[in-house]
Amino acid sequence: MRRRDCLSLCAASLQSATAAGAGAGAARPRVRFPRPQRQFELRRWYPLALLEQALQRSGWEVELQPSEQVMVQSRALRELQEPDGAVDVAWSVTSAAREQALRPIRIPIYRGLFGWRVLLVPQSRRDALRAVQDLEGLRALTLLQGHDWPDTEILRANGLRVLTTARYDQLFAMLARGRADAFPRGVTEVEYELARESQTVALEPHLLLHYPAAEYFFVSTQRPDLAEALEQGLLRMVEQGDLDRLLQRHHGAALKALHLGERRRIALHNPLLPSATPLADERLWWRP
């Protein structure tokens, strides 16, 4: 099946699922989200499951609808700033600049997991980083990241050498060809990527990078109604333990398989982290 046809079918399935149970002819608010670059079943995507549940907790029964075009993160966030933008909500690791331009809902949807990073390496060099002990050792490597990802700026701020490209798929090809030593990936992302790229890349077994990071839902500053609904719904899920249960249902097995507590942890600082980040609220953050 072609990529476009697959995405269209997945989108149609999601819209059908979110519409189930509505009365005949009932009009429901439409909430548009960025169509992803990856191919997978959208109804099984954790951010969408969380988005739908949070809105339901606030009394919103919505139709979740992907944008017509695939959107990289930077474009999705730009669309949120436009009066007639193509999306109503997006999610991203936060930064001071993003919080100034958009309305953040300051509840980390992955409980900070995007700041915990393992490394993908070329298949032939699976054990090549065994000797890396600390940040200085890491600085001798060349790492890969997307050109518009906040992680790129964070890594460079720690003195790390980073090679970038605008195309997500190209990063894996560059790694397989030996253009870089490693590709840091979030612990909730790497299972899917390893399964897809298992012929050419491998999981580095020794290292775990960490910097404080929060991935939030963002909406337009012109949508206080949507922001309030999301905040209320997410808070209710946190208080009742449902956000953690949903995250564990989607990612718990993969996290366990990474043996994160047994890895050598290298701490990095995050200069992009806004002062309003609720780091003191222990309910919101995951710890290995």
Rank of each mutant, 00 (worst) to 15 (best):
L255E: 05
S67K: 05
Q37S: 12
L42N: 05
M1Y: 12
R179C: 03
R4S: 12
A76S: 13
W116L: 08
R139F: 06
V72Q: 11
F172V: 08
V31S: 04
E262S: 15
V72E: 13
V93I: 14
Y211G: 10
R283V: 02
F217C: 05
L42R: 06
L163M: 15
W91H: 03
L155T: 02
R156F: 00
P108C: 03
S95D: 09
A27Q: 13
E282D: 14
R32K: 10
R249V: 01
F217V: 06
L64F: 03
S124C: 07
V31H: 05
H259P: 01
V89M: 02
H251A: 08
A17C: 04
I107L: 14
S198M: 02
R117L: 11
E79Q: 13
R106N: 06
T164H: 09
D148A: 14
S16G: 09
R185A: 08
Y46H: 07
L235S: 10
A90W: 01
P34K: 02
K256V: 14
M1L: 12
G186W: 07
D281P: 02
A17H: 13
M71E: 05
V201N: 03
E41V: 12
E228Q: 15
L42V: 07
G25Q: 03
D148M: 06
A20K: 14
S16Y: 03
L284D: 01
A180P: 00
P274W: 06
R75L: 11
Q145T: 11
A17Q: 15
Y46P: 00
Q240E: 14
L255Y: 10
V190A: 07
T18H: 03
D181V: 01
G261N: 10
R287M: 07
N158P: 02
L7H: 09
R30P: 00
L234W: 03
P288R: 08
G241H: 09
L208M: 10
V219R: 03
L102N: 06
N158H: 07
S95W: 01
A131W: 07
A253R: 15
M71I: 07
R28L: 15
H269I: 13
L203I: 10
V238D: 04
E79I: 02
Q15C: 12
D134H: 11
K256E: 15
W60D: 09
A182Q: 08
T200R: 14
R106D: 01
Q248H: 06
A227Q: 02
R126G: 01
G159P: 08
F40Q: 15
S220G: 12
H210A: 12
E82Q: 14
S67R: 02
C6T: 08
L9P: 00
R196Q: 14
F114E: 11
T94N: 09
P274F: 02
G241C: 03
A22W: 06
R44G: 08
L64M: 04
E282H: 13
P278H: 04
A131F: 06
Q73P: 00
A227M: 06
A26I: 04
Q248Y: 01
R117I: 04
L129A: 04
R43N: 05
P47G: 02
V219M: 00
Q56S: 14
F33N: 06
W286Q: 10
A26S: 12
D281A: 04
C10D: 04
D151S: 13
R125T: 06
E204M: 09
D5H: 11
L135T: 10
E239R: 13
R98M: 10
V62S: 04
V118R: 04
E189F: 10
H147R: 15
A86M: 09
A27V: 11
R265F: 07
L80S: 05
R264Y: 00
